[in-house]
Design a protein around this nucleic acid. Structure first.
Length: 378
DNA sequence: AGGTATTCACATGAAACTATTCTCTGAGTTAGG
DNA sequence: TAACTCAGAGAATAGTTTCATGTGAATACCTGT
């Protein structure tokens, strides 16, 4: 019950935003095109949740009143679904019941199929693009440009876009035209504070824990922990869930504060192991090289990594990648939060990236172990 | 001493390439009328 | 002649390589005092 994809009935501490979103989108219920809406805020602040909540209830009302309203939700980060221009349009077209192959067609052809289905009936379409920043990053902004302009080509249907992003500066990098039309309306979601997170947790606890299963202070501690991490409610919920599982597995009657610490530890470890196991081979080799170096000294630079990396490749008979690519891989490991890197100039001695391991020392041996076995290093 | 100019060791960007998966098209083939 | 088969052309994509250009400050190299 306490899972990330579970959408609660009631929404706590966000009434004003519900109202705001609803009022912006309201014209859709009268068959008018609402303004495009752009919502941004950090992860776990309820952006997606609220948007879906509002649009879902709108859909119900529309159904009752026979308004031809269609809401489409797409997460642009989903690999192989909607993360490129072609796939996005293809997926949209599929939403209208057409079958579009995953590859093989020219993009403009898919566009025109999409125009046709979309325009085949009179209707209002609300397109929710979650993590829209990913889309713009990978595909450039002409996808968004095309989408925002689409209305002028439609005769019957009308399309409004709701963009959701957790990158706060994302809009600034957009083309000015796209920017202005995409954010006709803007809403900023602030992070929750500890008190609000407590409220959210209490609400959820009602459904997923037995009465009195939590020792006093547990919720407070969870909330405090999450608030420290920029008010991410999702994290708080996950923490509570894992604590519950741990307590249960140990046969404890109550969830206690110590379970939270254990849970925190477990979540981190699981995440790390998961990443290490599921990365492509080349990533694993790079990571292994970093680990090798990191045990010797705290600060590492790109050049050192590359030479160790080359040696390792030789050992396991893997064709080494170029330095250029390894540099990118290091960058991606940074994104994943395994390392922390910073570009520094060391004057006469060049310019490089200073790399620090961002994982607890205690889990290094375990990670190494995993890598050694999966890579087949003797 | 103070001021420029160099220089290192990569970073960062853009374009082009490779291999894979998939569609569409049209020529050639086959089977039935 | 209609239906079928199958090779070839063309797309999209992920993951790279190639080529080109950028960069910040510790040093080297002046210059005039």
């Amino acid at each position: 019950m306490l899972q990330a994809n579970y959408y609660p009935e009631s929404i706590v501490h966000r009434d004003e935003f519900v109202r705001e979103i609803a009022s912006i989108l309201a014209p859709a219920l009268k068959c008018d095109r609402p303004s495009n809406l752009f919502i941004y805020g950090k992860t776990g602040t309820g952006k997606t949740l609220l948007t879906r909540h509002v649009t879902e209830s709108m859909q119900e009302i529309a159904k009752k009143n026979n308004v031809p309203l269609r809401v489409i939700y797409l997460n642009c980060k989903l690999k192989r679904i909607a993360d490129t221009e072609y796939r996005l349009i293809a997926q949209l077209t599929r939403e209208f019941g057409r079958i579009i192959p995953p590859t093989g067609l020219p993009t403009d052809q898919v566009y025109s199929i999409f125009y046709n289905v979309l325009d085949s009936d009179e209707r209002i379409v609300l397109l929710i693009l979650d993590e829209i920043d990913q889309l713009a990053r990978r595909g450039g902004d002409n996808i968004l440009y095309n989408l925002t302009r689409i209305n002028s080509e439609l005769k019957n249907a009308q399309l409004a876009i709701i963009g959701i992003s957790n990158d706060l500066v994302f809009v600034d990098h957009l083309d000015a035209r796209v920017k202005s039309s995409l954010s006709e309306e803007e809403i900023l979601f602030p992070p929750y504070n500890a008190l609000q997170i407590q409220g959210i947790l209490r609400e959820r606890v009602k459904y997923s824990f037995k009465e009195g299963a939590l020792k006093p202070g547990v919720i407070e501690k969870c909330a405090a922990y999450a608030a420290r991490e920029h008010g991410d409610a999702r994290r708080a919920i996950e923490l509570l869930r894992v604590s519950g599982e741990l307590a249960e597995r140990k046969g404890c009657q109550f969830v206690e504060i110590k379970h939270i610490d254990e849970a925190e530890d477990k979540i981190d470890k699981d995440r790390l192991n998961d990443i290490t196991l599921n990365q492509p081979r080349q990533f694993q080799v790079v990571l292994f090289s970093i680990l090798q170096l990191a045990t010797k000294r705290p600060q590492i630079i790109t050049g050192e990594i590359y030479s160790i990396y080359e040696d390792t490749c030789k050992k396991i008979k893997l064709r080494p990648l170029t330095q250029r690519r390894v540099s990118d891989i290091v960058n991606e490991l940074d994104m994943l939060g395994i390392i922390q890197s910073r570009v520094v100039s060391k004057g006469r001695y060049g310019r490089s990236r200073n790399i620090l391991l961002a994982i607890p020392k205690t889990s290094i041996p375990q990670m190494k172990e995993i890598l050694v076995t999966t890579l087949g290093l003797a």
